[in-house]
Design a protein around this nucleic acid. Structure first.
Lengths: 197, 197
DNA sequence: TGTCAACTTTACACGGTGTCAAGTTATAGC
DNA sequence: GCTATAACTTGACACCGTGTAAAGTTGACA
């Protein structure tokens, strides 16, 4: 497994992260990343043949560093469906800002690059599974609205929790992170949850 | 006003529309458009100096052709806030599929091109005004939820009605257009509307 | 007949990605 | 101590799409 020098590799990933974090809008080029990492542009290509590969690897790296699994554990541990819904929204909703820079870059490549598309799709699938688990838990408690099929409920929650929506609320609308979480939770309840029988 | 031959101009706009409509994902190049319009690539540049200009002009063209103003008239004519909310969601929600191709292209340029950014922002501002009017109407009727400030209510409705959300529901989730409208309406009510006093 | 506008043709600069090949350097194995 | 190799550097270049530039064609109109 030709992963060359792992230290260099990590420096590249760190640099990519830092640059995208600092400037999620502006286009970060391969040469920018190389400069930031203090190596030649070609060395970056030695580790990551395509730009998409680098972005994908960076998200995986962030997943490791941020230990997203541990964060989601709380939602899995929740007893009631409502608790699970809240915990999941909190875990994911607070993870978004940390991956936003990279996510935006990956999102922008989706239409041009197959690998980027699949990578993003995969991540979103994971989020969807979290939504599914929350909806299932609600359903078990008999608290899921009858207005939507289970699939529709998952679709709706999943859409609600999209990075784009977070971006719009926090960016264009100027909401605080705390308010975003708060309103999203309330919103999800109103949309999906029905009063106790 | 150097708008050259208006027939050619319209042919370019029509071609742009057709191509983007047919393939909203794939990148439509200036040369593709020229070929479709049966003219040289340079002739396109004679009418639209930048790609962004062309996309912006195409959205304006679509606005004219589709007569979006007339469609929104219904929501303006609504008596109650609830009616206004429904009518607006229906008008805008059903307009999205018609502009989706061009919208997606314009959206993709946002980060690179100032003009594209402003153009899209402007369109979204118009949508936001529709949201604002609906929220105001609800408020006048005393039916607006107390959980959100008026601005927050507008923000939320506006976000809910984003092209990205439509894209996700109809695309990834596979919803029908009718169901999208239906659920969005119900959803907006749950989020924003409170029972009569 | 000549002029002008609209368009064509050809060519090229630019920026960013990705490729190629030759050169350097540290280090590990013999 | 010599050499082979992995990791990286340097420099050049092809490719693609946008946008610019300039000279040539065509038809209409005056």
């Amino acid at each position: 497994m030709s992963r060359k020098n792992i230290e260099t590799r990590n420096r590249i990933l760190e640099s990519t992260w830092r640059l995208l974090e600092a400037d999620p809008g502006n286009k970060v080029r391969m040469s920018d990343i190389a400069k930031e990492a203090g190596i030649s542009r070609q060395a970056v290509y030695l580790h990551f043949p395509k730009r998409a590969d680098l972005l994908v690897a960076t998200t995986r790296y962030l997943d490791e560093v941020s230990d997203i699994d541990a964060r989601l554990a709380a939602s899995r541990a929740a007893k009631t469906g409502l608790e699970r819904l809240d915990a999941f929204i909190e875990a994911w909703g607070n993870y978004i800002p940390e991956i936003y820079g990279v996510a935006k870059a990956l999102l922008a490549m989706q239409d041009q690059d197959e690998a980027a598309y699949n990578a993003w799709q995969g991540r979103m699938q994971a989020v969807r599974e979290g939504c599914e688990a929350a909806v299932n838990a609600l359903d078990r408690d008999g608290r899921l609205t009858a207005d939507l099929s289970k699939k529709e409920a998952i679709d709706l929650l999943w859409t609600m929790l999209s990075v784009r929506n977070w971006e719009q609320m926090r960016g264009e609308c100027g909401w605080t992170q705390a308010r975003y979480i708060e309103v999203t939770k309330a919103f999800a309840r109103r949309a999906l949850v029905v009063d106790e029988a």
